[in-house]
Design a protein around this nucleic acid. Structure first.
Length: 274
DNA sequence: GAACAGGCAACTC
DNA sequence: GAGTTGCCTGTT
């Protein structure tokens, strides 16, 4: 069957900086080739993106996927309006991170990815997730290349812990399987939590073994479209200690405090300043 | 070889 | 309820 491939200008370079967006630690499945073309898979769709002439171009299966990708890159949100920089430090963070979008990733993939992220570096997480997809996901041909979808919860729920040995993810393997079983049999309804009340989502996620506050906030912000999600890891702790009062409440950063978190995190981690 | 890593949970006091 | 420790694996 012949498929028409479609290339469209998705956004301006100012709205969307693909390198920052893909490398800022929120996702693990996009990789760049030597000429800066990123390719990846989200929700079973493959795409390639690159920057040229002040714009970001996307190559996808068909023009009908454009709405999906606009949503994935959160392009309908007005980031400058959503972010009120109430200090010089926050202004610096926002300027440095300009062009980062908080991706609307598939909820199950985000939950798994951040369960695997604990006590791990980005390089290793990427490797584990790649092996997970290649071992248990479905094959997908796109633009002459072979890709894999993220394995469904149903697939992982049926595995024995030993079958995940290939991932070499250690003590996180049983966490992954029990999360899958919670989704399939245990009444964890990620769709119902999508965009829901943060407290409700947090309570549901914390019931999973291997999910604490940090992983839950990541799953909320990156997978459940809960924009107040505010993951605090060691980098964020360092930055908060240095630039905010001890009793600082992220709630003061507004409904989209997750965006502020991403700017602060990215600045602390790659901007050379804690 | 020991210590540690973008965290969690079980255990201690 | 605050602090300590083990956990798989890979890297330093």
């Amino acid at each position: 069957m012949y498929k028409t491939m479609e290339t469209i200008r998705l956004a301006s370079e100012t709205e969307l900086d693909i390198a920052k967006t893909f490398e800022c630690g929120q996702c693990f499945r996009w990789t760049a080739d030597e000429s800066g073309i990123y390719s990846g898979v989200a929700s079973g769709r493959a795409a390639k993106l690159w920057t040229a002439d002040g714009g970001v171009y996307i190559k996808m299966e068909s023009a009908g996927e454009l709405d999906f990708w606009r949503d994935y890159f959160d392009l309908d949100a007005d980031y400058p309006a959503a972010f009120n920089a109430e200090s010089e430090y926050l202004e610096d963070c926002a300027r440095y991170g300009a062009g980062i979008r908080i991706l609307r990733q598939e909820s199950w993939e985000a939950l798994c990815s951040f369960i695997l992220s604990q006590c791990n570096n980005i390089t290793r997480i990427r490797g584990i997730v790649r092996t997970l997809c290649e071992s248990f996901g479905d094959e997908l041909m796109f633009d002459g290349g072979r890709y894999y979808t993220f394995p469904a919860a149903e697939r992982l729920a049926a595995l024995d812990a030993g079958e995940l040995d290939v991932l070499r993810c250690g003590y996180r393997a049983p966490y992954l399987i029990s999360a899958a079983q919670a989704v399939v049999f245990g009444g964890l309804d990620l769709d119902a939590l999508y965009g829901s009340n943060p407290d409700e989502a947090m309570t549901a996620l914390l019931k999973l073994p291997g999910v604490g506050a940090k992983v839950a906030n990541c799953a909320m912000l990156y997978g459940l479209n809960i924009r107040s999600g505010f993951p605090v890891d060691v980098w964020m702790k360092r930055a908060l200690n240095e630039h905010f009062p001890p009793d600082f409440d992220p709630g003061t950063l507004g409904e989209f405090s997750g965006l502020a978190q991403q700017y602060i995190f990215y600045y602390a981690r790659t901007g050379g300043k804690a």
